[in-house]
Amino acid sequence: MNAFRLAGDITHLISILVLLLKIYATKSCSGISLKTQELYAVVFLARYLDLFTDFISVYNSVMKVVFILSSVAIVWCMRRHRAVKRSYDKELDTFRHYYLVGACFVFALLVHEKFTFQEVFWAFSIYLEAVAIIPQLVLLQRSGNVDNLTGQYVFFLGAYRALYILNWIYRYFTEAKFSRWIACISGLVQTALYADFFYYYFLSWKNNAKLNLPA
């Protein structure tokens, strides 16, 4: 495992910790899209079907369990926890995420590495992860101002994607038979979705001002 990949996994982990911190410390999930969180839970459940069939490393297995449990816990909290539930911006979080699930599944049936149960679900999870941030970005755009922890959550999530791209470039040059075009192209699409957010994030950071997304 190269340094970019490790740094990517760690920023991914940090993003989840920041989100958990926000929810636990403020007992609020305002600014967070439940739809995006539901999509991530589906992403991890679909992708890690191999948890019990393909052992890669202790690191891999532990991270998989952490991602599944944390994503399910966040959804549970936003749906069931009394105080957290009350702070949910339901009227701003109206993106029809079921369409994304359907479209990604159909696409996975058409484009996959192998036509097996696990491989189709793996491809589905890759496509769904690429677009799962959309409801979150739409919510932020609608609400305009973004609180610190929410901004940092999305920033770390975007950083994770950018580092994974560096990881693929590194692997492409260092591994003889590295061809992961499904993951790479989806990853590029996913990272491109953050471009706008990153632009305003760096602007606010440079000017030392609160993060504001123009409508």
């Binding site: 495992m1 990949r5 992708r47 890669i56 793996w122 992961r180 993951a183």
Partner: peptide
């Protein structure tokens, strides 16, 4: 790392 069949990334 080695990557024969399964997906080694998260």
């Amino acid at each position: 790392g080695s990557e024969p069949e399964g997906h080694d990334e998260l």
